[in-house]
Nucleic acid binder design. Structure first.
Lengths: 210, 210
DNA sequence: AAACCTTTGTAACACTTGTTACTGTGGGCG
DNA sequence: CGCCCACAGTAACAAGTGTTACAAAGGTTT
């Protein structure tokens, strides 16, 4: 755990803080597709991502989803920060995008460290900063782009996050993430294939040139 | 200034912090409709809202706008916090929704106070918290609601912010805020009038029952 | 009053997206 | 092998929103 922590956060956190994290945090491994937190659940701790990636989803009143953004190594969930502070329930769902390792920090330590470690304070501020920017980006995407452009952006992000041009995903899954229907996704994907930007196979998509 | 500060922030900030604000902040009055900060400008200070309301807007690549949310008394602009930290340019435009009074805090004081005053730290965290929630709300609205529902929500918010059922606004202005066209707004407003929810006059709208 | 500008109303049409329905296909399993 | 099922392709249509164009109404300026 210490090695991975230092790899991901060593340049940010002072040694004492890393010690504190090793002592108080619990390592958690999550398999791809597994749920990490559900909307309405109380937040028990704050996650620090060591390996893998997580996707953060919002839900509408019909239970349909919308992908907000991905988290990667070195990220934490600002929404969780949010909840810890406000002692409120989670406003989002978090699902492992691939096999993921994270350290859970008990919320009791959070306030203590905020006062104690300048690097922790900066990290928390920086996380809020990144997250707000990411949210702005999400809003831009939803508000200003058509579905075909959103789909392209989605595929690009997914390639980047998984470090693999070969995406293991069905049209229906994409439809859930983009909050649209399977037919629409199939239609647009077919068009992208015709334009030579991707190639389609059953259960996976190869991104050629987006 | 002190009186207004104590009214809006007295229950949050300790006396020494209020003193510090009075000493270092500069009072600024902005008339309704006036621009407070423009996208791409460097942020010179952080605003604390004493009176009035501000609307925060995002812009797309064509220069068209989208209303993100309103700020009221006791609020600060988390986007500005963001910029101060990152030393980056403003990502949003802020326009006075009505006659507004605010205190500008020089960014140099921000880090100092973060270390010095617990209440300031809490305020900053709390602001991030509120803003993230507000952004989630904005995303829900754009992603999950149709234009007619968005329009209703917009009118409701506007009534609340201005404390007045009589809205001084043209259809074109609404269209800008909702990132749609004037014709669409007119169409939907007419329907709301037929349903007895509002009444339409030239240059203003009376909200009856939304 | 006449000329003019801004705002609003409305129709007709185009485009994007969502829906329904049906077909075909690949792969696993009895 | 044949059956079943999840996945994908496609057409036809519906709904919502955006666009263009024009007319009418209100208010201001000359």
């Amino acid at each position: 755990m210490r090695t991975e922590l230092e790899e991901a956060y060593g340049f940010l956190f002072e040694k004492e803080l890393i010690d504190d994290i090793v002592e108080n945090g619990t390592l958690k491994k999550v398999a791809a597709g597994e749920k990490i937190i559900e909307i309405g659940e109380y937040v028990t701790g704050m996650p620090l991502l060591l390996k893998g990636a997580i996707k953060i989803l919002r839900e509408d009143s019909d239970g349909d989803e919308l992908l907000l953004y991905f988290l990667e190594r070195g990220d934490t969930c600002a929404m969780t920060l949010n909840c810890c502070l406000g002692q409120t329930k989670s406003e989002i769902r978090a699902v492992a995008e691939n096999d993921t390792t994270l350290v859970m920090i008990p919320i009791s330590k959070m306030e203590e460290w905020t006062a104690k470690y300048k690097s922790w304070r900066n990290f928390v501020f920086e996380s809020y900063h990144t997250r707000l920017s990411e949210m702005l980006d999400t809003i831009d995407t939803i508000a200003f782009l058509n579905m075909d452009e959103r789909l392209m952006r989605y595929l690009r992000d997914k390639v980047k996050i998984n470090r693999n041009e070969n995406l293991q995903v069905t049209h229906q899954e994409i439809a859930y993430d983009l909050h649209t229907s399977r037919v629409v996704v199939s239609r647009l994907l077919k068009k992208l294939e015709k334009d030579g930007k991707i190639s389609l196979q059953r259960n996976h998509i190869t991104v050629l040139d987006l």
